[in-house]
Amino acid sequence: MLRYLTIFATFARACLVRDMTFRANFLLECLTSLGWMSMNLAFYLLIFSFTPEIGRDSGWSREPFFAFVATGLIINAVVQALFMPSASELAEMVRTGGLDAILVKPLDAQFLLSMHRFDFSSLANGIVGVVLLAWAVPRFPVPPPLVAWLLYPLLIVCGVAILYGLIITLAAATIMMGRNQSLYDFWFYITNFSRYPAEIYAGPWGGPLRMLCTFVIPILLVVNVPAGTIAKPLSGEAWGMVLVTVVAAVAAISFSRLFFQTALARYRSASS
């Protein structure tokens, strides 16, 4: 474990050196990332100029909703910084045979494929997420209890774990299918469902969709449960969802690991 931490630190240091070599580009990447986030925040402010909350009696009024957005920013910043830059290269590596070079190295292939790049500019959004959370929480009608603050970091880790499991599952599918750009785009479209409170998925279509995205592809647990823990009272149902999220995180990591190993066993090199 210590060996892997040391190697990861080396990767991160190398990425930081490269980023600092092109400082202007790094700054621009941070700014464009912040620009995208600001646009979304402006959109949410616009929505709240028309309605006091999102979803009738959902409890997602302006400040709790911005805590929800902040939680999403923090989780996505970690995922984008740690895993996405590496995983996004995988489809091309499978197609060109570049994956072979990873497999012959004396390190775990999943570790190398998912963590060899670190995107420091993505952390900018995470920092804004923390600031946004610090702005929103004191404005809640009821301040979060201590237990909610204790659960919050754990549930953030669970959210990251669920997203990591999804990335690895898609990476495994890429290895199995050879070329699946559409399937990989699936990541961006499916995570789109986690951008809003689960309560919006209601009605004859929304209800089944909510169940699907909670218990089959647990994408709705990623932001909803940690944000709900801090922004809403901890009822019996909320405790149940906390438990479901912890189980889903463990299941996502285990299933993706198993699927990835199966995919590697079936991998046939694309080169020579």
């Binding site: 929505i47 028309f50 309605t51 006091p52 909350e53 999102i54 979803g55 009738r56 009696d57 959902s58 070329r179 699946n180 750009q181 559409s182 399937l183 785009d185 699936f186 479209y189 499916i190 789109n192 469902f193 951008r195 809003y196 409170p197 309560e199 919006i200 998925y201 209601a202 009605g203 929304g206 969709l209």
Partner: peptide, 30 residues
């Protein structure tokens, strides 16, 4: 086929928008 599936998936964000605006209209009573 990859192309057609990709096109179909581009509609997924609209599904979210439909539910979002439905929730906004429901809460605003407008």
């Amino acid at each position: 086929s990859d192309f057609a599936i990709g096109t179909l998936m581009r509609f997924l964000p609209i599904v979210t928008q439909v539910f979002l605006w439905t929730a906004v209209f429901a809460a605003s009573n407008r």
